[in-house]
Computed example of a mutant assay.
Amino acid sequence: MTAPRSIRTLTLSRSGLAITGPALALLVAAAASAQSYPTRAIRFITVAAPGTVGDIIPRVLAQELAARLGQPVVVENRPGGSGLVGATAGAHSTPDGYNMLLSTSGTMIVNTFVYSKMPFDSLKDFEPVAHVATVPLVLVVSSASTVKSVKDLVAMARSSPGAVSYGSLGNGSTHNISMSIVKKAEGIDMVQVPYKGSPAAFQDMMAGRLATTFDFVGFSLPHIKSGKLRALAVGVPRRLGALPDVPTMQELGYPGFDTAMWYAVYTPAGTPRDIVRRLGEEFRAVLGTPSVREKFAALTVEPGNLIGEQFTAFQAAQFTRWGNIVKSLDIRVE
């Protein structure tokens, strides 16, 4: 039986498939939505605490994005629970294009394998918008330490099992995973000391109460430059322009060592696809501006450039990679 003309949604013409009726109305409405978007302020949740790299990044991006969109982009800090507090707020926000989330590879991917129960599904509860930044780590000791190299650090830990301490942000943090890779590769036992942030760990290192830590280069660099900390190695595949004389962990005999943390923008699942695409293109444009690149360089942060399907594919590969790493190290948080 032929459907009445008034409710047909698809018709064939000489030129191919034509969309009519309700389907056409939906497409027209979507196009109009994309063209008029945004009409009010956009909330930009970050999983980071004020004053941290994860707080500075969204504020730098928000300033440029607001100028391009013609509407305010308001950064909202929702730290806590290894990023789970902020990410959960992002997942539960209205999927209308006026709620964005800046989260990390640790929160979205590593936590999936570390925690026995997650408050959200990283793949199902979010629309990936853009990979915006990569933050490298560096292994440091106090400049007063007798440790001059990674080899020295390993020798010290081997000679005093369970006595050499390292700082981290807790089980499953990038700091913890980085050192756990070294511990497993060398068969050494070190004591993890969890901190709420880098300043306290640096203070203890300089006072001789903590032996070492992997930390973000942006935090460590001022102390390295001032001579208070000594950099032993960087945890990325290539040497850093800011620390050209510091070897990579791969150079020192740790194949595939790359524990850099990355930041990405998401919207809650169900956000209109045209708006997700628009935001992705806007972030790509913003990340290419001299202003953003200069401010990121000052933080030793590498701008990202992946949006859409490229970012989705990258994230899928990262799930596989980090899943294998975490499982091999048997790191869990109950």
Rank of each mutant, 00 (worst) to 15 (best):
R5A: 13
S6H: 14
I7M: 05
R8N: 07
T11M: 04
R14G: 05
S15V: 12
P22Q: 07
P22V: 12
L24C: 06
Q35D: 08
A41P: 01
I42A: 01
V47N: 01
A49W: 03
G51F: 04
I56Q: 07
I56R: 10
I56F: 01
R59Y: 05
R59Q: 11
V60P: 07
L61D: 01
L61R: 06
L65V: 09
R68D: 07
L69S: 00
Q71D: 00
P72N: 07
V74C: 04
V74L: 12
E76W: 10
E76M: 13
R78A: 08
G83C: 08
L84V: 09
V85F: 02
A87M: 05
T88E: 01
T88K: 07
T88S: 11
A91H: 00
Y98F: 06
N99F: 04
M100K: 09
V110L: 02
K117N: 08
M118V: 11
D121L: 13
D121K: 14
V135Y: 07
V135Q: 06
V138P: 04
V140M: 10
S145W: 10
S145K: 13
V150T: 05
V150A: 00
M156Y: 03
S159T: 09
G167P: 01
G167L: 01
S168N: 02
G170V: 08
N171V: 11
S173K: 06
S178D: 04
I181Y: 02
I181W: 06
V182I: 15
K183N: 12
K184T: 11
A185E: 09
D189E: 14
M190K: 14
M190H: 12
V191L: 14
V193Y: 13
Y195F: 15
G197H: 07
P199Q: 07
A200D: 08
F202I: 15
Q203E: 10
D204L: 08
M205D: 05
A207T: 01
L210Y: 10
T212E: 02
T213W: 02
F214K: 05
F214A: 08
F216Q: 11
P222F: 02
S226Q: 03
K228Y: 03
R230G: 04
R230K: 14
V236S: 07
V236N: 04
P237T: 06
L243P: 10
L243K: 08
P244F: 14
D245C: 11
V246Y: 05
T248L: 15
L252F: 00
G253N: 15
Y254W: 13
A260M: 06
M261A: 15
M261F: 13
Y263V: 12
R273Q: 14
I275D: 01
V276D: 03
R277S: 14
E281K: 15
E281D: 15
E281I: 00
V286G: 00
G288L: 09
S291Q: 15
V292A: 11
E294C: 08
L299N: 06
V301A: 01
E302M: 13
P303A: 07
P303H: 02
E309R: 04
T312K: 11
T312N: 03
Q315E: 05
A316H: 04
I325M: 04
V326H: 06
S328R: 09
S328N: 11
D330R: 15
R332C: 00
R332Y: 00
